[in-house]
Computed example of a mutant assay.
Amino acid sequence: MTQQDGPPEPQHRTTTVEQGRFCLARCTCGWRGPARRARSQARTDAESHANST
């Protein structure tokens, strides 16, 4: 059994959300990406955010 120092690191779980003609990325930490017309760009924004921490 291992002990942890302090609380565990929060995981960033991202999703993409459609809003009319736009798509944006959101994260469970409260981060929200810019509205994009291309879903692929919104997914890239989400991936970049999740990997930046």
Rank of each mutant, 00 (worst) to 15 (best):
R32M: 13
Q11P: 04
A35T: 01
Q19R: 09
Q4T: 09
S48K: 07
Q11E: 12
R13I: 15
T53R: 13
A46W: 08
G6H: 00
M1D: 03
D45T: 07
E18C: 00
Q4Y: 03
H49W: 05
G33K: 03
P34F: 07
P7V: 03
A46F: 02
R21L: 02
T2Y: 04
D45S: 04
Q41C: 07
Q3T: 02
T16V: 12
C29L: 15
E18S: 00
T53G: 09
T28P: 07
A46R: 05
H49M: 01
A35K: 08
C23A: 04
T53W: 03
A50G: 10
C27G: 12
T16W: 05
N51S: 10
A35I: 04
Q3C: 03
R39Q: 12
Q4N: 08
F22K: 10
V17I: 13
P34G: 02
R26K: 15
V17R: 02
S52L: 00
M1I: 03
E9P: 13
A25F: 05
T15D: 11
Q11Y: 13
Q41I: 15
D5Q: 14
G20Y: 00
M1H: 01
A38R: 10
R39L: 10
A38W: 14
H49L: 12
E18Y: 00
Q19G: 03
P34E: 06
G20I: 00
N51M: 11
R13M: 12
E9L: 11
T53I: 14
T16R: 01
R36S: 04
T15L: 12
P8Q: 03
E18V: 06
E9C: 10
T14H: 09
G6K: 02
Q11C: 11
C23N: 06
D45G: 11
A25K: 07
P34N: 09
